[in-house]
Design a protein around this nucleic acid. Structure first.
Length: 467
RNA sequence: GGCGCCGUGGCCGAGUGGCUGAGGCACGGGUCUGCAAAACCCGUUACACCGGUUCGAUUCCGGUCGGCGCCUCCA
């Protein structure tokens, strides 16, 4: 397994820290709004990575946080006359609901920041003890950036260069503009927790350090998220975690590229967002997943109706091959003439698929291997030279391959066709047998009106839902 | 300005120091079919530009142009 690490900026061999157990942390959402399609990309990446690791026999613990206390949540709550907790609970539930619909399963642990305040406080105390943090009179606690010599190593920024852009909000008592808040003293009406520095709440960044370390320990395998989190979020996580521990926080930093619309990042602040829940009204979950996995996770991808339509076509092609596999009736002899060739193709493309995934999770390449095998399978099925046993073996292989890519929905073709539609299809078959083609075509239109498509296959017909 | 990523055929998108150019979509031709769909077969002058290294570069190095991201809201 080779994996690109954004810290060292190179692909390296990846071997889990704990033998066959992979420890992963991905940054999840701050729940002040519905998640958009761009937020879905790291979610899909993390679960696809998990599936691949499992497919090679590793165990995986995937942690994905839910940040449920933050300025943005408080602002929204105040604007709407609600409590921050209400806002956070609403959008956390919506996030779970929306991402569940993708059908990829869930991360193993989804910790909330507000349930880990004691761990956060303990981490901050440790940083103060180490000389990496300081409390000021109003109860804020800041990280002392200059105390951490490696600061900037992930984002490749120099501290001197950063001095210019750093901002100081009036009322903050930082030693240096670069210092960032670990703990924010509560203002009237804000949610707060008690701490050695008085009532307050965690700053952004610290919850990820605290929860990552709690659940995965020092030097865990993979920390992921969008590229745009490199600075400041992940840079600050490194400073906090390594400042407290002394050792390396993470072994591999994995960052996905941005989702763009018209060459511009999809982002809440730009306002060009397409919510995941809206997208799911228009597209099947597997179409969205196919859109994501058809290109490499590090590349930026362009969202457009055309690219989604194409992903929909790809998904349909995969669904068709599974329909054909299930329907296949061929020679039941043990060694049909085409078996050796099909088995060889299965091995070839299964291996190529695995190699692609092992090369920095190259899902686009792996998907290509799926299609290449699909074509071989379709050809073998059409030629009818393969045994049902060999076909079953091919179905299993293809099924494993699409599962790793998160596209297992395409294998579920046993779609219920309503009895009345089947009656129409049977009537049409009789009409065709009697060469009453006008009647047959009329029945096909009726079937279409019911939302189904009837296809004539060698041994009869197949009814499939219309896209 | 600093840092980082990228530029592949009509479109999307893998990949590689040479034996050639994954795969998908679209389009055209064919096979099958009453028609249609599905499927299969065939086809469509690819590697931004300029130098360099090399027997040979789309692949390595340097530069140019263009795009994107980050430089304390961001997945």
């Amino acid at each position: 397994m080779r994996l690109y690490d954004s810290l060292t900026q190179e692909k390296r061999d990846f071997v889990p820290r704990d033998g066959d157990h992979v420890t992963m942390y991905f940054c999840g959402p701050t729940v002040y709004n519905y998640v958009h399609l761009g937020n879905a990309r790291p979610f899909v990446l993390s679960l696809v990575a998990k599936r691949f690791f499992q497919s090679v026999g590793w165990k995986v613990t995937l942690v994905e946080n839910i940040t449920d206390i933050d300025d943005r949540i408080i602002n929204k709550a105040q604007k709407e006359g609600r409590t921050a907790r209400e806002v956070a609970e609403e959008f956390a539930a919506a996030y779970i609901e929306d991402t569940n619909r993708l059908g990829l399963g869930r991360p193993d642990i989804e910790p909330c920041a507000t349930e880990h305040v004691s761990e956060i406080v303990a981490l901050i105390e440790r940083l103060i003890a180490n000389g990496h943090a300081y409390a000021v009179a109003n109860g804020d606690v800041y990280y002392k950036v200059e105390s951490f010599g490696a600061y900037g190593k992930l984002s490749k920024q120099r501290i001197e260069e950063m001095q210019h852009g750093a901002r100081v909000t009036p009322g903050e008592e930082k030693d240096s503009p670069l210092d960032f808040a670990l703990w924010k003293a509560a203002k009237p009406g804000e949610p707060s927790w008690s701490s050695p520095w008085g009532q307050g709440r965690p700053g952004w960044h610290i919850e990820c350090s605290a929860m990552g370390l709690k659940y995965l320990g020092e030097g865990f395998d993979i920390h992921g998220g969008g590229r745009d989190l490199i600075f400041p979020h992940h840079e600050n996580e490194i400073a906090q975690s390594e400042g407290a521990l002394g050792g390396d926080f993470v072994r591999f930093w994995v960052h996905n590229g941005m989702l763009n619309t018209r060459d511009e990042k999809m982002s809440k602040s730009i306002g060009n967002i397409f919510l995941l829940r809206e997208a799911l009204k228009e597209y099947r979950p597997e179409t969205l997943i196919c859109f994501f996995v058809s290109s490499h996770y590090r590349s930026p991808i362009e969202f457009s109706a055309d690219s989604l339509a194409e992903a929909g076509q790809q998904v349909e092609r995969l669904r068709n091959v599974f329909r054909a596999l299930v329907d296949y009736q061929g020679p039941s002899v043990a060694d049909a003439p085409g078996d050796a060739e099909l088995t060889a193709a299965v091995e070839k493309y299964r291996g190529a698929h695995r190699e692609a995934m092992a090369d920095d999770l190259n899902t686009g390449g792996a998907l290509g291997e799926v299609f290449a095998l699909a074509r071989e399978v379709n050809a073998a099925l059409a030629a009818k030279t393969v045994s049902e046993a060999a076909v079953e073996q091919a179905r299993q292989a293809l099924s494993d391959m699409v599962y790793v890519l998160g596209l297992d929905a395409v294998t579920r073709t046993a779609q219920e066709v309503p009895a009345e539609v089947l009656v129409l299809a049977e009537a049409r078959a009789r009409a065709r047998a009697e060469r009453k083609f006008a009647e047959a075509d009329r029945l096909r239109d009726e079937i279409a009106a019911a939302g189904f498509e009837v296809r004539d296959v060698p041994d009869g017909f197949r009814v499939v839902p219309r896209e």
